[in-house]
Design a protein around this nucleic acid. Sequence first.
DNA 1: TGTAGTACATCGAATTTTTAGATGTATCGT
DNA 2: ACGATACATCTAAAAATTCGATGTACTACA
Lengths: 295, 295
Amino acid sequence: MDTTLDAWEILQAVVQLGGFAPAAKKLNKSQSTISYAIGRLQEQLGVKLFEIQGRKAQLTEVGRGLLADAESHLAGFHELEKRARLIASGGASEVRLSVDSIYPDDRLFEVLAAFSQKFPHVKPKLRQCTFLSADFEFSAHNAQLCITGVITRELFARPILVIGIIAVVRRDHPLLAIRRRISRADLMQHTLVTIENAASGTLKHQPRLLAQRLLPVSTIESAVAAVRSGLCFGWLPKYRIQAELDKGDFVPLPLPAGQTREVRLSLVSREMNASNTEMNALADLLGVSGDPEII
Amino acid sequence: MDTTLDAWEILQAVVQLGGFAPAAKKLNKSQSTISYAIGRLQEQLGVKLFEIQGRKAQLTEVGRGLLADAESHLAGFHELEKRARLIASGGASEVRLSVDSIYPDDRLFEVLAAFSQKFPHVKPKLRQCTFLSADFEFSAHNAQLCITGVITRELFARPILVIGIIAVVRRDHPLLAIRRRISRADLMQHTLVTIENAASGTLKHQPRLLAQRLLPVSTIESAVAAVRSGLCFGWLPKYRIQAELDKGDFVPLPLPAGQTREVRLSLVSREMNASNTEMNALADLLGVSGDPEII
DNA sequence: TGTAGTACATCGAATTTTTAGATGTATCGT
DNA sequence: ACGATACATCTAAAAATTCGATGTACTACA
């Protein structure tokens, strides 16, 4: 990393205040320091950030583009330092939770609300993972708790929820016109919506047929919408399409037995550490104590 | 800003490689430099990042939490430097576009696809603004082009699209049982879904009745879902609920004339600068040349 | 139980980076 | 043309970072 946070911050100040001298005054530095910092930043990046128009320095288009992105990350580090100092002063603690996006939102927020009420000073930090991403997201987010269906490493995992997945189509889909049991070959004839992980590979839990025509989407919502459009069939969590099933808009495909799927979600934690009261309370609310519910 | 990017990067390396010495080797620094940097970072943040367990330094829970956030922003700055150097080598340029979330997605991506095909080296940077946020988002994102319905400043704006907004309910909603013309008083009796800007105030284009029971949501999708649930009525873009209207699931409220709304989206740009070919091409694709379409 | 080896901390000197103040150059308003 | 403004450059001083050496605490192994 060549550039420094200070340099970007100086750039931001110069642009906001419209000149080197005001920025210098605000940052309690000399004007030459500002000039030096800007010059250095330009040199490191290899681009001109300012263009001298008359006696004013005007941000270039390139500079505008780079600064636009830099500002959010700059704010991120400010936030980070603030948080650290809050923690330092004993102000707050946090519990980091990564949740697979297949986990029902209402359930999640209900739990989070209950938790926040019980531990008002503890900030639950949530990260909604992409669909069925494995527990390595866990380490990426450095989460303490992770709700996932795919467990690859030797971690402490407890089952909490089983989500039924069924293959459905819109009520007027041609697959429903077939009178006999639907075979794999029948499915091959039609487009299947799949939920792809933006980052890496595709979903594993969906029984994939080779050479299947696929419609990749990025969220469960989009997949439901795709099926609603009548364009394709899809393997979807039952609870997410209950309304459509009740109304008769969506119809489950009459597949041979064994063709229903389920995702077994587990709560994964780093250690079976009993010492962290807050974490254990959250785990409890998420349902580790009882038998896994089936929806 | 007290901390430096270098310090965070060192922290990251130490955690990734599991020790001071390996991190030192990787970063081409001496071990004492690493030790100094970590010590300084801890001092600046006021928290212990590592705990010495035996002769190994173990990341504390606090450290894990802070690093988790820092990593994404760190990656952001790396990305930023990379991009700057790409631009420096004449590799690429970009067009930054901010779009109100009410703008139809399919239309947007169609335009973007056509644009990318025409200018493969130009990266269109997209930002989907929140619903009906004004053009000050424009400056926040430093966008060159902005599609918005609210124009507050003296900028160069050209109308491109008119989106019809209608009040709808689910077909079994009690409001439809009223035989006479629906009055304001009738509407007051029922819950209205509103799309709130996460950042600031609420939507202005919806005729708000005082003391109306409100259900605030954050996206148009959620608002549609709320109406679909039958819980409330809502002012929604017609094009987004066409399917529901056609099927008869949603029914427009028979309001007195003048109670239909529309959002007039304009393409706003900083200057009427004719020099930027790419920007003008994108503007063209977005429909500035013809009359604004009405949907 | 002693000894070699590993891992991080600390120290002091050398180096590098950053800073301020003075000065230079170009531009603007009058 | 003049003084004022805005940024660039120069130089010396101040601050920080860096390194290698050494110190301390622990582990593993004999």
